[in-house]
Simulated scan of single mutants.
Amino acid sequence: MSIAQLKIHSQSYAIKHEITKQLCEKLNLAIVQAPLIVPADSGLQDTLSGHERPVSLEVRAEQQRYEVVHSLAKWKRAILAKYHAQPGEGVITHMLALRPDEEVLSARHSVQVDQWDWEQVLAPEMRTLMTLRKTVELIYTAIKSAAKVTGHWSESYADKVFFIHSEELREMFPKLSAKQREKEITRMHKAVFIIGIGGELSDGQKHDDRAADYDDWTSLNEDGRYGLNGDLLVWHDGLDDALELSSMGIRVTPEVMVKQLELKGGLPSLDLPWHRQLVAGEFPATIGGGIGQSRVAMWLLQQEHIQHVQAPAA
């Protein structure tokens, strides 16, 4: 790696710094430090699709087992409750996580995950598709504004996000796999948000898997389709493919969580402390998600491997 390549890391840092500032301003978020580990069996761990094994360790002084986080989807909601955040207020963290169970490491997948993990309190009546769409637009605007400030915005990028439900996408490309559909729709529109990820589509397949206890992927929305969550993707010329930047959504109510846990055979999770608190009504309604920092830098700096914008290999 040359010094010129190392300078890419400086540019990446500048982009991440400016995006953090823009996200805080546009979503009214306060920066908090992210934990690296959470207590095992607390319910705070993000189980992702349910198959990934977390890195665990024993803290000798406490005789307590902890797990390195996958993400902070549930921790953030607990923090907002603890500090009595009001509708429209939220938090953002610079999260580092380990996901050693990735089946394949590639140009866009690494064991180390760095993302903006953010969460915002909603008034209960704001748990709507309109809220989801507006929040996605604010996030994309924040990224675009930061890219322009740092001189990394290209006129070839989409000015706005195109929204489509995963069922509509299946109907458009019925013979393609989910990833192939993502590629085709993102090639067409450059920036796409796919709504409704986690539940079965009309062909009995899922667009992708989602945990049962944070995003709401079963509620009927204003468009008459199911799901209040989704993924934000952009077109990356160098990869000749869609690149997922964010997974996010309106969070589950107690009733929705129980329904989704039942669908996934996860009802025993209701005995965990975090889940008991949610069922007891101790957490506010929220919207939140993760935005991949290195993925965004890859896109804006047009790098073709995530290692080029993460910690350089020695």
Score class of each variant (00 low, 15 high):
residue 81 A to T: 06
residue 72 L to K: 13
residue 146 A to L: 13
residue 95 M to E: 11
residue 85 A to W: 01
residue 36 L to H: 04
residue 144 K to F: 10
residue 48 L to T: 07
residue 91 V to N: 00
residue 53 R to Q: 15
residue 99 R to Y: 05
residue 157 Y to I: 11
residue 49 S to I: 08
residue 59 V to T: 08
residue 30 A to R: 13
residue 124 P to D: 07
residue 47 T to M: 06
residue 60 R to Q: 13
residue 99 R to H: 02
residue 131 T to P: 02
residue 60 R to P: 05
residue 100 P to F: 05
residue 125 E to P: 02
residue 47 T to D: 05
residue 74 K to Q: 10
residue 66 Y to M: 13
residue 139 I to A: 10
residue 109 H to L: 07
residue 122 L to H: 13
residue 31 I to S: 07
residue 126 M to L: 05
residue 101 D to S: 14
residue 124 P to Q: 11
residue 38 V to I: 14
residue 129 L to H: 09
residue 66 Y to T: 01
residue 78 A to H: 06
residue 80 L to R: 01
residue 132 L to H: 05
residue 136 V to Y: 10
residue 83 Y to P: 05
residue 68 V to L: 08
residue 70 H to I: 00
residue 96 L to G: 10
residue 98 L to F: 06
residue 105 L to C: 00
residue 41 D to W: 04
residue 154 S to T: 10
residue 158 A to R: 03
residue 51 H to C: 09
residue 52 E to S: 03
residue 133 R to Q: 15
residue 144 K to C: 14
residue 152 H to F: 11
residue 40 A to W: 02
residue 151 G to N: 13
residue 39 P to D: 06
residue 60 R to W: 02
residue 146 A to F: 09
residue 129 L to G: 05
residue 103 E to I: 00
residue 57 L to N: 00
residue 60 R to I: 14
residue 91 V to Y: 08
residue 138 L to T: 07
residue 148 K to I: 15
residue 38 V to P: 05
residue 130 M to E: 15
residue 96 L to M: 14
residue 144 K to T: 15
residue 115 Q to L: 12
residue 121 V to T: 15
residue 102 E to S: 08
residue 128 T to P: 03
residue 62 E to S: 13
residue 74 K to D: 02
residue 103 E to P: 00
residue 113 V to E: 01
residue 154 S to W: 02
residue 127 R to D: 02
residue 59 V to A: 14
residue 142 A to V: 13
residue 68 V to N: 05
residue 150 T to R: 14
residue 125 E to I: 09
residue 105 L to T: 07
residue 38 V to A: 08
residue 59 V to C: 10
residue 46 D to V: 01
residue 95 M to A: 13
residue 65 R to V: 12
residue 151 G to S: 10
residue 112 Q to I: 10
residue 160 K to Y: 14
residue 118 W to S: 06
residue 70 H to P: 06
residue 81 A to K: 04
residue 44 L to A: 04
residue 94 H to V: 12
residue 57 L to K: 03
residue 137 E to I: 10
residue 123 A to R: 11
residue 45 Q to A: 14
residue 111 V to K: 08
residue 156 S to P: 03
residue 94 H to N: 12
residue 91 V to H: 04
residue 32 V to K: 00
residue 86 Q to K: 15
residue 131 T to Q: 12
residue 109 H to S: 04
residue 127 R to H: 03
residue 41 D to Y: 06
residue 34 A to C: 01
residue 43 G to R: 02
residue 92 I to H: 09
residue 49 S to L: 07
residue 37 I to P: 03
residue 59 V to P: 01
residue 120 Q to N: 11
residue 105 L to Y: 08
residue 102 E to F: 01
residue 99 R to Q: 04
residue 118 W to R: 03
residue 126 M to N: 07
residue 78 A to R: 11
residue 44 L to T: 09
residue 69 V to M: 07
residue 59 V to W: 08
residue 52 E to W: 01
residue 44 L to E: 11
residue 84 H to C: 03
residue 136 V to C: 14
residue 40 A to T: 11
residue 73 A to H: 04
residue 69 V to I: 15
residue 129 L to R: 12
residue 103 E to A: 09
residue 41 D to P: 00
residue 45 Q to L: 15
residue 62 E to G: 12
residue 65 R to W: 03
residue 109 H to F: 09
residue 98 L to G: 00
